[in-house]
Amino acid sequence: MTFNDKLNITANDEDVAVFHISNAHMDGDSILYFTQSNILHNSDTYFNDSYLCIDLKSGSSING
C-alpha cells in the first residue's frame, strides 16, 4: 500500500491515521495513530537515548 502524505485505514475495527514524516530517519518514514486507543506508533523515527541513523543521501536530516 502506498500513499503520499496521509492515509486513513481500519485495523481490527479501529481507525488508524497514518502520516508520512518527510526527511526523518529515511524518506519513507511514517507514524501511525490508533485513534480509539490513543496510541502513537513512531517506529524508528524517535529514540529516547540516542540519535538514530539518518539517511543523508535521501535528503533526511536531524531536523526532520
Results as ranks from 00 to 15, higher is better:
residue 64 G to Q: 06
residue 36 Q to V: 03
residue 26 M to W: 09
residue 12 N to L: 08
residue 40 L to P: 01
residue 14 E to T: 01
residue 4 N to Y: 14
residue 8 N to G: 03
residue 35 T to D: 06
residue 1 M to P: 02
residue 50 S to R: 14
residue 50 S to K: 12
residue 11 A to K: 07
residue 60 S to E: 06
residue 50 S to I: 04
residue 1 M to Y: 10
residue 53 C to H: 10
residue 45 T to L: 02
residue 56 L to Q: 09
residue 44 D to E: 12
residue 22 S to A: 13
residue 56 L to P: 00
residue 21 I to T: 11
residue 41 H to Q: 06
residue 2 T to Y: 12
residue 63 N to W: 12
residue 12 N to F: 10
residue 3 F to V: 01
residue 28 G to E: 15
residue 22 S to N: 13
residue 31 I to P: 00
residue 55 D to I: 03
residue 58 S to Y: 06
residue 63 N to G: 15
residue 11 A to M: 06
residue 44 D to G: 00
residue 53 C to L: 13
residue 35 T to K: 09
residue 31 I to Q: 04
residue 22 S to Q: 13
residue 21 I to D: 04
residue 55 D to E: 11
residue 38 N to D: 15
residue 9 I to R: 07
residue 62 I to H: 14
residue 8 N to W: 11
residue 48 N to P: 01
residue 38 N to T: 08
residue 54 I to W: 10
residue 13 D to P: 00
residue 30 S to W: 08
residue 44 D to Y: 04
residue 24 A to M: 06
residue 57 K to N: 12
residue 45 T to I: 09
residue 25 H to R: 15
residue 14 E to P: 00
residue 62 I to M: 10
residue 38 N to E: 15
residue 42 N to L: 15
residue 18 V to G: 04
residue 49 D to P: 00
residue 32 L to A: 11
residue 63 N to L: 12
residue 35 T to V: 11
residue 63 N to T: 01
residue 41 H to Y: 14
residue 8 N to Y: 12
residue 53 C to E: 14
residue 34 F to H: 10
residue 17 A to T: 11
residue 42 N to K: 02
residue 40 L to W: 10
residue 49 D to W: 07
residue 40 L to I: 11
residue 58 S to H: 08
residue 6 K to I: 09
residue 30 S to P: 00
residue 40 L to N: 03
residue 9 I to T: 09
residue 27 D to H: 09
residue 46 Y to C: 05
residue 42 N to R: 02
residue 10 T to E: 14
residue 3 F to D: 03
residue 31 I to A: 08
residue 61 S to Q: 05
residue 53 C to F: 14
residue 58 S to F: 02
residue 34 F to W: 13
residue 56 L to N: 09
residue 9 I to K: 10
residue 51 Y to L: 10
residue 46 Y to R: 02
residue 62 I to C: 02
residue 40 L to M: 12
residue 8 N to H: 10
residue 5 D to K: 07
residue 51 Y to S: 07
residue 28 G to D: 15
residue 31 I to C: 08
residue 3 F to L: 03
residue 51 Y to K: 04
residue 29 D to F: 04
residue 50 S to N: 08
residue 44 D to R: 00
residue 61 S to V: 05
residue 44 D to L: 05
residue 54 I to G: 02
residue 25 H to K: 14
residue 26 M to H: 12
residue 42 N to W: 15
residue 29 D to R: 01
residue 29 D to P: 00
residue 19 F to S: 03
residue 45 T to H: 03
residue 10 T to L: 05
residue 13 D to E: 13
residue 48 N to M: 07
residue 50 S to A: 11
residue 4 N to R: 12
residue 7 L to I: 05
residue 21 I to R: 04
residue 20 H to F: 08
residue 45 T to W: 06
residue 14 E to N: 10
residue 64 G to M: 07
residue 22 S to I: 12
residue 50 S to L: 06
residue 11 A to F: 10
residue 57 K to D: 14
residue 43 S to V: 01
residue 22 S to W: 10
residue 10 T to M: 09
residue 33 Y to V: 13
residue 7 L to R: 12
residue 33 Y to E: 05
residue 62 I to T: 02
residue 30 S to E: 12
residue 15 D to L: 08
residue 17 A to F: 12
residue 38 N to Q: 14
residue 18 V to S: 06
residue 31 I to V: 15
residue 16 V to T: 01
residue 44 D to P: 00
residue 9 I to C: 04
residue 12 N to K: 07
residue 5 D to F: 06
residue 58 S to W: 09
residue 46 Y to A: 04
residue 64 G to R: 06
residue 54 I to N: 02
residue 34 F to D: 00
residue 47 F to C: 06
residue 23 N to K: 13
